[in-house]
């Protein structure tokens, strides 16, 4: 992979605050108990992250 292309891949790190903010806010709108909320949010972040990585890999292979 070219260095410039690698640097562009690092842009994906901007997704981290988005994923965590979305997960925690969504989890907070569904749970009142803090422990459940954190567990729900972490599980959701992992799911979102997994699907984003999967989509990214598929797109890298295709294009």
């Amino acid at each position: 992979m070219e260095p410039l292309a690698f640097l562009r891949c690092l842009d994906c790190l901007y997704a981290i605050p988005l994923i965590f903010a979305t997960s925690f806010v969504y989890a907070a709108s569904r749970n009142e108990n803090t422990q459940n909320l954190v567990y729900y949010a972490l599980r959701m972040s992992a799911t979102l992250g997994f699907f984003m990585v999967l989509t990214f890999v598929v797109m890298m292979i295709l294009f």
Binding site: P17, L18, F20, A21, F24, V25, A28, L37
Partner: peptide, 9 residues
């Protein structure tokens, strides 16, 4: 949680 996540973002 709401303040940190929403305002932070």
């Amino acid at each position: 949680i709401y303040a940190i996540c929403i305002l932070g973002l």
